[in-house]
Every structure is written in structure tokens, then in C-alpha cells.
Amino acid sequence: MMVMLVEIVVQVVVLRQGWTISSGPRRRLGGMRIGAHVDPADPLAEATARHAEVVQFFLADPQGWKDPQARADADALRGADVDVFVHAPYVINVATTNNRIRIPSRKLLVKHADAARTVGARGLIVHGGHVDKGDLATGIDNWRKTFAYAEESGGFATQILIENTAGGENACARRFDALARLWDVVGEFGVGFCLDTCHAHAGGEDLVDIVDRVKAITGRIDLIHANDSKDGFDSGRDRHDNLGSGNIDPDLVVAVIRAADAPVVVETPGGATGQSADIAYLRKRLNG
């Protein structure tokens, strides 16, 4: 009886901490596991090619409005010893005042969250969006309405991770003063946050102490996009580069990862070769 009670307590602790129990070594799902954004055709093969512990991919054309389709490898993805994240299409902008974009964006985001759940995704990353004209407050309220819309059908099936963006003067998640206004509205829905180092640099937010500043607003960082930037500080241009090849001091990227203590995805160029080098660089720096 005592043994059974101990086993039950262990199971409860494991579930609350986000761990898994298997016949092999235990691993924590969180922490500094490192991987890459990969081609969606065979994410697990891409992970193997990069020695990645994390994969991120699209479930449909990132520049289109097509619904995600069922995947033949869904069971394999759910059962793999790889953390899975899904990125929503770039076209989604739930903040806009344009009804022909905002309403389809809400619907498509729900569908992608449903599909992301089928592959065991830990989060669905979506850009913060922007308002083409008018007051940013309208865009922020449109984010609130997005969660209210989802709750009509039971809420998002996969946790939404809002990502900071690089450009736009009326963006909801470029400047952190706007991000604070956004979180005042959406924080109650349990939304997560994805911090992109290139976007922050290009968006005019210094990487020094950025983790503290983000957590003071959101209370959390669920994923790091560790990217260098081809362009200068506050350029407003979203162009990623391999670590150490662009305009960001790689020491700052490493410091951000250490402070955030969250899974890491590189969205850098060069395919498996370029991304493997970035992953190896981060592992060496973080383990050194």
C-alpha cells in the first residue's frame, strides 16, 4: 500500500511539472531544448538531420488561407521524443480592422489550433498583428474578441503563443508598451509568449535585460526564436540570419536563452547545414 501511495504521489508531481515517464531516462519537456523550424514534409527526419530536440513547422501554406489537412505522421509526431511547435500562417492578422482579413483570421486560427493538437504541439505561434489605420486600441480589442470567439466552441485546442514582431508602427507586439496594453486584455485567457531575438532587435527593443522586461509584462516566455538579424537595430525589417553572421552580438542571444530557460527554435537560413551549425553553437555555449 505504501509503495502504491508513493507511486501515485510521484505521478501527480510529474504531471504538474510537465514531465513524462517512460521506460528510458526521464526528460523535462521545458528547459533549454534546442531545435529548428523545418520543412513540414517530414519534420522528424529533419530533426534527426539537425540533431534537434525541438521542431517547428507549418501545417499549411504560410502565405495562404487553406485549411490544414490531416497528417499521416500525426501519431509518430505525438509519440516522438521531440518537442513539437506549430507556426500559424503569416497571413493571419486578428487585430486588423479589415473584416475580410480579421474574420477569416479568427476562423483559421481556431482550425490551426485544432490541427496542432493532433500532432501533439505544445504551442501554436502567431504573430501579434497590426492595425492598418485607426487606434491601436481597436486592434487590441480585436484580440480579446478572438479569444471570446474561440471560447464559443470550447477555447483553443492548443495554447496560443503570441510572437513579437519586427515592423509596423501600429503593431500590437513590436514595441513593449503596446505589448503591455495587449497583455492587459489577453492575459486572462492563459495565452503564452514567443520571444524572437531578430524581431526584437529589428523592432527597436534592446536584447539587454529583455527577458526581465518581457516577463514583467507577460509573466512568462514559452519559446525562444533564436535568430540573428541581417538588418540594423530598429530597422523594422524581418530578415533572419545565422548566429554570428548578422548584426546581433551572439553573446546577447545566448544570454537571452539562459535567462528565459525555455525551448529554443532557430529559424535561420542554410537548411540542415546552417541550422545544425547554429544548434551546435548554442549547445556549446550553453553547456560550457
Rank of each mutant, 00 (worst) to 15 (best):
L15K: 13
R16Q: 03
E46K: 12
H37R: 05
L15E: 15
G35P: 01
G30H: 07
R26Y: 02
W19T: 11
D61K: 04
E46P: 12
A45L: 15
G24K: 12
F58K: 11
H51I: 09
P25M: 12
G64E: 00
K66L: 09
L15R: 10
G35F: 02
V55N: 06
G35N: 01
P68E: 01
A41R: 09
D67K: 14
V12T: 10
R26Q: 05
A52W: 06
E46F: 14
S22I: 14
A49L: 08
G64A: 13
T48S: 12
P68C: 02
G35L: 05
A70Q: 08
F57D: 12
V38F: 14
V13M: 10
A41I: 13
F57G: 01
Q17V: 09
W65N: 01
E46I: 10
T48D: 05
M32H: 13
G24M: 11
Q56A: 07
P43D: 06
A52H: 11
P25Q: 07
S23Q: 14
D61E: 05
V55P: 06
G35D: 03
G31C: 04
A47I: 04
W19N: 11
T20K: 03
Q63E: 10
H37L: 11
L44T: 05
V54F: 00
F58M: 07
G35C: 04
Q56K: 04
F57V: 02
R33H: 11
D67C: 04
P43Y: 00
G24S: 06
G31R: 08
M32F: 02
P62V: 07
A45C: 13
A41V: 13
R50H: 02
D42V: 01
V14Q: 14
I34T: 04
V54T: 02
P25R: 14
G31E: 01
I21Q: 13
D39R: 14
P40V: 03
G35E: 01
V54I: 02
T48E: 11
V54H: 03
L29R: 08
R50D: 03
G64Q: 03
V55A: 05
L29W: 04
K66C: 04
A60I: 04
A47S: 05
K66D: 08
A45S: 15
G30P: 02
R28N: 09
E53Q: 07
L44G: 06
G31S: 08
R27I: 13
A70S: 12
G30A: 08
L15G: 06
K66G: 12
G35M: 09
W65L: 03
R28E: 07
L29Q: 08
L44E: 06
A36W: 00
R28G: 10
V38M: 06
V13N: 09
R50M: 15
V55G: 04
T48A: 09
W19E: 05
A47N: 08
E53S: 09
V14K: 15
L59T: 10
L44Y: 04
A52D: 10
R28I: 05
G31A: 09
P40C: 07
H51K: 15
G64I: 02
I21K: 13
D39S: 13
V54K: 00
R33S: 06
G18V: 03
A49I: 11
F57T: 02
T48R: 14
D39G: 10
K66E: 15
P62D: 03
E46C: 12
A47Y: 07
